[in-house]
């Protein structure tokens, strides 16, 4: 069963890419060549019908997952949108229409629901800390805005499931990331004198190495995050900086690496937000073959001043890839680098 899900996922990815870019034209051209194979098709159709009937017996369960069920604490107009557009996959109440109920469609849908629940299940989100719930809502809005959710392939069979511009605006208005400043007003600026730590507290569970010296890399960009009141600086190694100067994007070359350092934003007492406590550093390093399973990038995160590796096991990288997936056309990179080579 597992293998089947995995391959259906890959086929689906092919669909997604194909449909997004080529408007189906190549597809039509290739189908024309099929008319000569009509007899073969007939035989295959009968075979398929038999296999199809037998297949109906194989039904992965979509029962209620374990653990306490608490809905998110959000106003009704926000909840309604999530229920209408997302609960079909991301809740305890999968809503299937009749054509979803027959295998092999059912397998695709069941796999979607299982993977969707594993990523986000709104039916249990209420048990999580408020900050986590808020982070999930921001990720949700961004997945919608970048066209990644609801899944493209799902919209083909359920055209009325798309989030409307009004609904998206409602969600954004509720979240209002810059309406309030950080809570830690008046706190002092960051610690100053320090020893450089050149080692992480341990390896990342997926084996992606810590890259010492990232604080000496050149700056790619900075971000001011109103969703979680942090300031971030994205730096790049030599290979990455050369690729920017040589105008090679979006294909980042082998060995290119980014580090993103995140600090709590604190008010310095003069109306300015400055980096306070160091929260974490995250890396992406490009090795096409070695990291083929995660878009060619090795992901790693090291948390706190002692650089504790993040992740219970190697699966943590699915979190990283999942959120970076909507920018796959940019080689999974969110940041728009400051242009280089024109200054001086």
């Amino acid at each position: 069963m597992r293998g089947l899900f995995a391959s259906s996922q890959r086929v689906r990815d092919g669909w997604r890419i194909g449909l997004r870019a080529c408007g189906g034209e190549e597809l039509r051209d290739s189908l024309v060549g099929m008319t000569g194979a009509r007899r073969t098709l007939g035989v295959m159709a009968v075979g398929a019908a038999v296999v199809g009937l037998v297949a109906q017996a194989i039904r992965p369960s979509l029962g209620r997952p374990e653990g306490p069920r608490v809905e998110m604490a959000v106003p009704p107009q926000v909840r309604e949108i999530l229920v209408r557009r997302c609960y079909a996959c991301h809740s305890d109440e999968p809503r299937l229409v009749w054509w979803d109920e027959a295998a092999p469609m059912y397998w695709v849908v069941a796999s979607d629901v299982q993977r969707a629940r594993a990523a986000v299940n709104y039916s249990e989100m209420g048990t999580k800390p408020l900050a986590t719930q808020r982070a999930v809502l921001f990720e949700s809005v961004n997945q919608i805005e970048l066209g990644a959710m609801p899944l493209r392939i799902y919209l083909l069979g359920h055209p009325d499931a798309e989030v409307t511009a009004e609904e998206l605006a409602t969600l954004k208005k509720y979240l209002a990331p810059f309406a309030t400043g950080p809570a830690s007003a008046g706190a002092g600026a960051s610690e100053s004198a320090h020893e450089d730590v050149t080692e992480a507290a341990g390896p990342s569970p997926n084996g992606v190495p810590f890259l010492p010296g990232f604080a000496n890399w050149r700056v790619i960009s900075t971000t001011d995050r109103g969703d979680d009141h942090t300031l971030r600086m994205i730096t790049g190694n030599e290979i990455a900086m050369r690729a920017i100067a040589a105008h090679q994007l979006p294909s980042w070359p082998e060995g290119a690496a980014f580090a993103k350092s995140t600090w709590q934003a604190v008010d310095d007492g003069h109306g300015r937000l400055v980096p306070g406590k160091f929260l974490q550093v995250e890396f992406m390093e490009k090795h096409r073959v070695q990291y083929a399973g995660t878009g060619g990038w090795g992901f790693a995160r090291f948390v706190g001043a002692d650089l504790k590796p993040y992740g219970k096991d190697a699966h943590f990288e699915n979190e990283c890839l999942g959120c970076h997936e909507p920018v796959r056309d940019n080689d999974y990179v969110f940041t728009l680098p400051l242009p280089r080579g024109s200054e001086r």
Partner: peptide, 29 residues
Amino acid sequence: DLYNVQAALTTGLPYPVLEWRAITTAVNR
């Protein structure tokens, strides 16, 4: 959609500031 074109530094500076390392960053809302 690939580079932050709007934020580019034009020519005319006496030092290659983007080639330097960063000390800190700050935001004035």
